[in-house]
């Protein structure tokens, strides 16, 4: 009978706690019914018991049939989207980390031996694990919350008095409105990458070259760290807003009015930032170039000395871009009405 107890224990482990005792008791009595029915004389052998347990089904199978109802963290409706977000976030993180490793190889590790480099890569691979876990954890948490807070199917709410209303079907997006997933995904990956770059590897951003002696990599810093500290909060707002927009576009798959307006607000913010940068502390601050690149020095000086003007020009160009988009939107709207 020990086999029966082991079997019941295995099932019990997988049952909801509240019903566990009762179900196990019932199963025990049912197994005994089986035994009594088949073994008329003497004690049942292990073989008799095994035969019956096999017929009853494996513990996992039996337990699963007792557990009905929704028992998922993220349901089938969200699952595909969840997987996709996990892959995107993972991709963005891995890209960011790989670039940072490559950059470190060229800067701080230049001239090191093969063993040292391997050690560095191994150490970094280990250090990215918490980051990956945190990112996947955050995505999972967000989706679990959506799963628990949204009662209706996420895609469209047709409902009207319990019946679905075909007239509420959304129009098929026109060709120019469709946003391909790959566009949004690239946007997300790029934005996360930039965020990681500027938050964790700010001091490693620069221009790298092999010195003419050929024994080490030289880094030329291009940004003023104090200016970066001033601008980074503003950039962050813009990047996070863009990130939100890309995620949203990925979910709905098309440009609608709201997305276009949101995009314009982000561009307006960017224009404001550009004007601020034109008037604020100088962003570009190059280290002296080495002898190998002395020819580039005039270009670098020109950029450094005229950066305000350059930001102004960029800002004005962006205004034209914004106006053009606004015009398109209005024309589209008017045409749509006719």
């Amino acid at each position: 009978m020990e086999l029966v107890e082991k079997y019941l224990y295995a099932i019990g482990k997988k049952l909801p706690r509240k019903q566990k005792r009762d179900i196990v008791e019932e199963l025990r009595s049912l197994i005994i019914d089986n035994l009594e029915d088949r073994v008329k004389e003497g004690e049942p052998t292990d073989e008799d018991i095994s035969q019956i347990l096999i017929e009853m089904g494996s513990p996992a199978e039996v337990a699963k049939k007792y557990c009905t109802g929704t028992q998922w963290l993220i349901g089938p409706q969200l699952y595909d989207m969840y997987l996709m977000m996990c892959k995107i976030v993972l991709g963005a993180l891995l890209l960011g980390y790989s670039v940072s490793i490559v950059v470190s190889l060229f800067s701080s590790l230049s001239g090191s031996g093969f063993g040292q480099i391997m050690w560095y890569i191994a150490k970094n691979l280990l250090s990215i694990i918490p980051g990956i876990l945190a990112a996947i954890g955050a995505v999972t948490l967000i989706f679990a919350i959506i799963e628990r807070t949204s009662k209706k199917p996420l895609d469209i709410d047709f409902a009207e008095g319990g019946k679905w209303n075909p007239s509420k079907l959304e129009p098929i997006p026109k060709k120019e409105e469709v946003v391909k997933p790959i566009e949004s995904i690239l946007g997300i990956v790029f934005t996360v990458f930039v965020l990681v770059l500027f938050y964790f590897y700010r001091d490693k951003i620069g221009f790298y070259y092999m010195s003419s002696l050929g024994d080490n990599w030289v880094m030329v810093k291009i940004f003023s760290q104090s200016a970066l500290r001033t601008y980074l909060p503003l950039w962050t707002i813009s990047w996070v807003l863009s990130l939100g927009m890309y995620i949203w576009l990925l979910c709905i798959g098309k440009y609608n009015m709201l997305a276009r307006v949101f995009e314009m607000i982000v561009s307006a913010l960017n224009i404001g930032i550009l004007f601020f940068m034109a008037n604020g502390p100088h962003l570009f601050e190059f280290d002296k170039l080495g002898a190998d690149f002395i020819d580039l020095q005039p270009a670098v000086d020109f950029l450094t000395n005229n950066q305000s003007t350059i930001f102004y020009i960029l800002a004005v160009l962006s205004i034209f871009g914004l106006l053009a988009n606004l015009g398109k939107l209005i024309v589209g709207k008017v045409k749509g009405r006719i």
Partner: peptide, 20 residues
Amino acid sequence: QCLAQKGLNIEQSTLYPLLR
């Protein structure tokens, strides 16, 4: 057994949870 006698074979692992 009652169901089996009348010609309906049902797996025990299906029936017991169904009763619940």
